[in-house]
Amino acid sequence: MSEKKALPVNEYKQIKHNIGNGRPTILAFGMSHCYSCLAMSKLFAEVLEKHPEYQIYAIDGQKERIVSRDIYKLKEMPTQIFFNERGEEVFRHTGAYKKPVLEIILKKWGFV
């Protein structure tokens, strides 16, 4: 059985222009040494394999402290922030969850 791959980590300054570009977007904040963060990243990578049109970006919340702490006011990792097609935050979740829960969330917020 092959090992699941995690999302590539992005710099916020490289992807922030995609928020509000007419497509829903997810920012998945995590840290490289966090087991739950890695699990969520692998789950989102699996979603992107099926739906490459989705905009899901992994952000290292530790390396990008100013973004995670000052812009998005995050206190814990992993945290996922869901934006609608206009760039408005519609949902945020702290912690990890299983694939069936993620599928419900994706459907509710217009990804599926």
Score class of each variant (00 low, 15 high):
F111M: 05
K63S: 08
G61A: 08
Q62E: 11
V112H: 01
E85C: 11
K108H: 08
V47T: 12
R92C: 01
K5C: 08
N21D: 14
K99C: 09
P24R: 01
S36Q: 12
G61K: 03
F44V: 10
T25K: 04
L43Y: 03
M77N: 14
E46M: 07
S68R: 02
I56R: 01
L38Y: 01
E53N: 14
K5Y: 00
F29E: 04
E46T: 11
A6R: 11
E89Q: 04
G87I: 02
E89G: 00
I26T: 13
E49N: 15
I105F: 00
A6K: 13
H93Q: 11
E53Q: 14
N84W: 01
K63Y: 08
L38G: 06
Y35V: 14
D60T: 02
K99L: 13
P52C: 02
I71K: 09
T25M: 09
P24D: 05
G22R: 02
C34I: 05
F44M: 10
K107Y: 03
P24N: 09
R86E: 15
K4M: 09
S68P: 09
Y72L: 07
V112F: 03
E88P: 00
S68C: 07
A45V: 08
C34K: 03
K16D: 12
F83H: 04
Y12A: 12
F83Q: 01
T25V: 07
S2H: 13
S2P: 15
N84S: 05
F29N: 07
I15Y: 06
E3I: 15
Y97Q: 10
Y35I: 12
N10A: 00
M1R: 12
I59E: 05
F82E: 01
V47L: 06
I81D: 03
P24V: 05
C34L: 10
C37Y: 10
G20R: 02
E76K: 15
V67M: 14
E85W: 03
M31L: 15
H17V: 12
F111R: 02
I59G: 05
G30A: 06
F44R: 05
Q14R: 10
N10G: 00
A96Y: 10
N10R: 00
F29R: 10
L43R: 09
Q14F: 14
I26V: 15
A58R: 00
P100F: 06
V101T: 14
E89R: 01
A96Q: 04
Y12H: 08
I56Y: 04
L74H: 02
P100E: 07
L106R: 03
K42I: 00
A39E: 12
L27D: 01
I105G: 04
F111S: 05
L74G: 10
P24A: 07
T25R: 03
R69Y: 13
E46P: 00
